[in-house]
Simulated assay, not measured.
Amino acid sequence: MKVKVISVLDDNYMYLIIEEHTKDAIAVDASVSKKLLDIVRKEDANLKAILTTHHHLDHSRGNADLVQRFPDLPVYGADDRIGGLTHKVVHNQVLKFGGINVRCLFTPCHTTGHMCFYMWEDGCCDAPALFSGDALFVGGCGQFFEGTAEQMYKNLLETLSSLPPDTKVFCGHEYTVRNLKFALKVEPDNEHVKEKLAWAKARDEDDIPTVPSSLEEEFLYNPFMRVREEAVQKFTGKTDPVEVMRVLRKEKDDFKKPKDRLPIPALLAYQLGLLNQSLPEQK
């Protein structure tokens, strides 16, 4: 299967997954409908479904417009707050779109209804793919807006860690450089962090996405996946992995906060303004 990485807004990613034999396609986190449809046309693909990781507007705002344009287009997700939702899914539910299989993995914390999507294609030797939304990032994890450290520990160290190590990770935002700078603060002697940060900085300077990573790689440099490691525990002053997760998240939230950072309600309003500007005029 072919994965198109689509940059939108300030630092978001949405994705188009195409079964190359049939040209059937699934979109993940269709926040900007016009740009998604442009890519669908360019790829000569047939859009069959929308998968939405969570209800935040920068991941779901395009759903309503897409459903209005294509009334039979199904929208899958786990939260009733997702715009345009037509099919509510549950943990471990498997969806099938032609040769592409999707296992829904419930990962509540960033939001109470957050769902990751694990995909593989029948008869394909490519590594499987995980669309992790705002649960797992390259080098980091999402903020605990509606959940707890216990939930994020289960998400990362139990649910997602049970997947094959070569699983490619396609996350919801381009936060890699910022995340790895924090990872270096946590583990200043970790050579994997240093190498990945240098690589990510070079990609960032050339405006090239840093996705995908792999689960195997995340265990080498992502502090939130390394809460059982002695060096990470030493940084937090805790040994219980859940407590390590809790302290890490607080430290990350306070890490080099921009002085002009907007509060969350204002930030969401700003994103909505950007999204509305991206939508075509309705006649």
Rank of each mutant, 00 (worst) to 15 (best):
D134G: 01
A135G: 09
V138A: 11
G139H: 02
G140D: 08
G142M: 04
G142A: 04
F144M: 15
F144W: 09
F144I: 06
F144E: 14
Y153E: 10
Y153N: 13
K154A: 11
L157D: 00
T159V: 15
T159M: 05
P164Y: 06
P165A: 10
P165N: 10
D166S: 14
T167F: 09
K168N: 06
K168F: 05
K168Y: 07
V169H: 00
G172C: 11
H173I: 00
Y175S: 09
N179R: 03
N179D: 09
K181W: 00
K181M: 13
K181T: 06
K185N: 03
E187Y: 01
P188R: 05
D189S: 11
D189L: 09
D189T: 14
N190S: 08
E191K: 14
E191I: 11
E191F: 02
H192A: 15
K194M: 10
K196P: 00
A200M: 06
A202Q: 14
R203T: 06
R203I: 00
D204Y: 07
D206I: 02
D207L: 08
I208M: 07
P209C: 00
P209M: 00
T210Y: 05
S213D: 06
S214L: 10
E218L: 13
L220R: 10
L220D: 07
N222M: 01
P223S: 08
V227S: 08
V227M: 09
R228E: 13
Q233R: 14
K234T: 13
F235W: 00
T239R: 14
T239F: 04
D240G: 05
D240M: 03
P241T: 08
P241M: 09
V242Q: 11
V242R: 07
V244A: 06
M245Y: 05
V247T: 14
K250D: 05
E251S: 14
E251A: 15
K252E: 14
D254L: 09
D254N: 11
P258F: 03
P258T: 08
K259W: 04
R261N: 02
R261K: 14
L262P: 01
P265M: 11
A266N: 06
Y270K: 15
Y270A: 14
Q271D: 10
Q271H: 13
